[in-house]
Design a protein around this nucleic acid. Structure first.
Lengths: 359, 359
DNA sequence: TTGAAAGCGATACCAG
DNA sequence: CTGGTATCGCTTTCAA
C-alpha cells in the first residue's frame, strides 16, 4: 500500500526500530523480554518484527553480549571404554568449542552412586554454568536434583540413560528398548540351532540396562521360540567381575549358544571366550563400539555390535544445551541419536590414535 | 621474561596489533594474506599471533565481512525417493541456513547424463557461488568440469557417489564397497538354504552402484558358498522398469532365494514381490531408508536396509563446503558418513509429514 | 607499505 | 518508560 520500506535482503534491528518508530534500545528490550516497556510499545515492535520477517542474528548478538557458554558433563568415574570414549569426545570438543564461545568441563562422580550425582548437581552455580549433561542412574533423588538445577536456571539434559522427571526434560541417547529388540533380532537370526541365551547386564539402577533387557526379552519370546533366555548375570560394567562370574554360569547351562552383552565390561566376556575356547562357536551380540569390541568383531569373536556414536552424543548434548539456554527451538530430527548396528563389514575407519594424518 | 602482555581470556586482533607493534589493518592484511605488506612486518605479526595463541573469531569476521555463503546442490532430476529425500533435506536446510548467513540452492539435471552436469558446473559463476555439491555419474568430462570449477575458485564436493579426480577432492558419502560387503554379510547370514541371489543394480555409469556390486560379490564368494550370485539386472533406478524385468529373471532362475537391491527403484521390487506372492519367503536386502522401503521392512517384505542418512549427507556437505571456501580445516571424524543398517527393530521414528508436533 | 576510522548487527549502560 | 551511544572482534575504505 503505502511507500514500501526500503530494506535489503535481511532486516536488522535498525529496520525494526525505524518501522516501529522506536529506538534501538527499545527493540532490544522487546527482543529480550526485558521489563520496562509499555504494552502498546511492545505491540508496535512485535508488529514491525513480523511485518519485516525479522530474525535476530545470533552471531552478532553473541558478539555484543560477549556470551560464553559454560557447559559441564557429569560422568561416572570408571575406566570402561564407553565412558572413556565419551571423555575423549568431550576433550576434543573442548578444543574446538573455544572458537564457538563455548567452555566445556568434565565432572566425574563415583559410579552407581546417586548421592554423588545429586551432590554434584547441587554445587552447580547458575551464573557459572549454563547447562549440564548428566549420565547416571535414575533415582528419585537424582530427578529432584535435576529439577532444582533447572529451577536455578541451568539447562539439563540426560545423556545415554533417560531421567524422565518431567515433560520439560530432554534426553540425548538412543531408545534402549529398541536397542534390546534389535539385539534380539540379530541373535535370533544368527543363532541357527536351538539353545539358551545368556544376558549380561550391568546394574538394576541403570535405566538403560533395564530397558535393553526388556526389549530383548520381548522379541526373543515373541519371535524366536527355539532360543531360551536364561536369567541374566549382573556384571556392574566390571570386566573382572564378569570374567569371574561366567565359568559358573556356563557350567550351570552347558547349552548356552549365544550371549547378549547388554552393558559395559565386554573385555571380561572376550577374555572368558578366548580362555575357554568358545570364541567362535557362540553368537555374541554386544553393546558399544570400542577398541576391544571392535577387535572382537573383526576377529569373529563378536557377531554384531549395537552402538551409539559418542561423538554424536556429545555434540548433540552440546547443541541441545545451548539451544535450551538461549530458549531456542531444538531440531529434533537432527538430535535424534541413531541406533547403530555394526557387523564386521561396516565398521567405520578406526579413529586415529595420535593425530590426524599430516595432510 | 619481560612484562607479560595483559590479556583477557582470548586474544583478539587488537592484542595482536599491540604485541606486533602494528595497526589493526596490517594484522588483518596478514591474517587474510592480502598483498602489500613487507616480509618483515608479516613476520612480526605472525610471531605475535602464535605468541598469543590467537585464533580469529569467525563469527565476528563474517559479521564485519557481511559474508553470505552461496551453496548449490546439483542433483539428478528424478522422482526416486532417495533423491527426493535429499531435496527435502536441502529445503529444510535452506530455511535454517538463513540464520547462518547461508543461501542454498538446488539445481536439477537430467539423470545419467554427464553432459548436463558438465553444463551446469560450467555455468556456475565464482562470485555468485561459493561451493557446489555434485551427485552424479563419474565420467572424465564431469571430473574435468569439477576441476574447472575449482580453478575458478568454487569449492566442490562429491555427494553420495565419489568423483576421484584429484587428491584435493572431498567425498561426502559412504564407502560403497563396504556397503556391498555389509549387504552380502546380512544376506549370507539371513538366507539359510542354498540358492541363487539376484542383484538389482542401477547404471554402470554410477560409481556407487559399481562399488556396491564389487563389495557384495567379494564377500558372497568368500564367505557364503551355499549362495550363488546370478548376473544382475540393470534397473536404471526406475521402479517400472524393474517391475517389468523381474518376472523374466525369476522364470530363468526359479531357485532365487534372495535379492540384493543395490540401487534405487525399490518400489518396483516391492510391487513385484507382492504381486507374485513372494514377499515373505525371499531374503531381501535393499538400500536407502525411504517411505516405501521402511514400510517394506516393517511388514516383513524386506529383511534389512543399508542406508545413509540424508540429513547427515546434506549437513556434512554444507559444513565441508563452507570450511573449504574459508580454507578452514575439516573435521574428518565428524564428516564421516556412517553406513546404517536397519532391521525392523531399530527403525528411527518416522519423519513427521506435516509439521513438528506442536509442543 | 601502513594507519585511522567507519561500519557489521546486536547489547547494555547511562541519562532523561 | 524510552532514547542515545559505546562496544564486541574483525573487515574495509580512504588517506597518508
Amino acid at each position: 500500500m503505502s511507500k514500501p520500506v526500503s530494506i535489503g535482503v535481511k532486516p536488522t534491528t535498525v529496520d525494526v526500530a525505524r518501522v516501529a518508530g522506536v529506538s534501538l534500545a527499545t527493540v532490544d528490550r522487546v527482543l529480550n523480554e526485558r521489563p520496562g516497556v509499555r504494552a502498546v510499545t511492545i505491540e508496535k515492535v512485535r508488529n514491525a518484527i513480523d511485518k519485516l520477517g525479522f530474525t535476530r542474528d545470533t552471531a552478532a548478538a553473541n558478539l555484543a553480549r560477549q556470551r560464553v557458554y559454560k557447559l559441564v558433563f557429569i560422568l561416572p568415574e570408571t575406566t570402561n571404554e564407553f565412558v572413556t570414549g565419551l571423555e575423549n569426545e568431550i576433550d576434543e570438543l573442548r578444543m574446538k568449542a573455544i572458537h564457538d564461545r563455548t567452555r566445556v568441563e568434565r565432572l566425574h562422580v563415583p559410579p552407581f552412586e546417586p548421592g554423588a550425582i545429586v551432590a554434584a548437581l547441587d554445587t552447580l552455580d547458575a551464573d557459572r554454568v549454563d547447562g549440564v549433561a548428566v549420565f547416571g542412574p535414575e533415582t528419585p533423588a537424582v530427578r529432584d536434583a535435576v529439577k532444582r538445577a533447572r529451577v536455578r536456571g541451568i539447562a539439563v539434559v540426560a545423556l545415554v540413560a533417560d531421567l524422565p522427571s518431567s515433560k520439560r526434560d530432554y534426553f540425548v541417547g538412543v531408545d534402549n528398548v529398541a536397542a534390546g529388540r534389535t539385539a534380539a533380532q540379530l541373535m535370533g537370526r544368527f543363532a541357527r540351532e536351538a539353545g539358551r541365551i545368556l544376558v549380561i547386564t550391568g546394574s538394576r539402577l541403570a535405566r538403560d540396562h533395564l530397558e535393553r533387557r526388556k526389549g530383548f526379552d520381548s522379541v526373543m519370546a515373541a519371535e524366536f521360540p527355539h532360543l531360551d533366555v536364561v536369567a541374566s548375570i549382573e556384571g556392574r560394567d566390571d570386566p573382572a567381575m564378569i570374567r569371574n562370574l561366567l565359568p559358573k554360569t556356563f557350567k550351570t547351562y552347558p547349552d548356552i549358544c549365544g550371549v547378549y552383552s547388554s552393558a559395559a565390561g565386554n573385555q571380561g566376556l572376550i577374555q572368558f571366550l578366548k580362555d575357554s575356547g568358545r570364541a567362535q562357536d557362540l553368537v555374541i551380540v554386544a553393546h558399544e563400539l570400542t577398541e576391544s569390541s571392535r577387535a572382537a568383531l573383526e576377529d569373529g569373536t563378536f557377531d554384531a555390535i549395537i552402538s551409539q556414536d559418542s561423538g554424536h552424543l556429545i555434540r548433540s548434548a552440546t547443541r541441545v544445551l545451548k539451544a535450551t539456554a538461549d530458549r531456542l527451538p531444538i531440531d529434533h530430527m537432527q538430535e535424534r541419536i541413531r541406533l547403530d548396528i555394526y557387523l564386521r563389514d561396516n565398521l567405520p575407519a578406526p579413529a586415529p590414535f595420535i593425530q590426524e594424518e599430516t595432510k
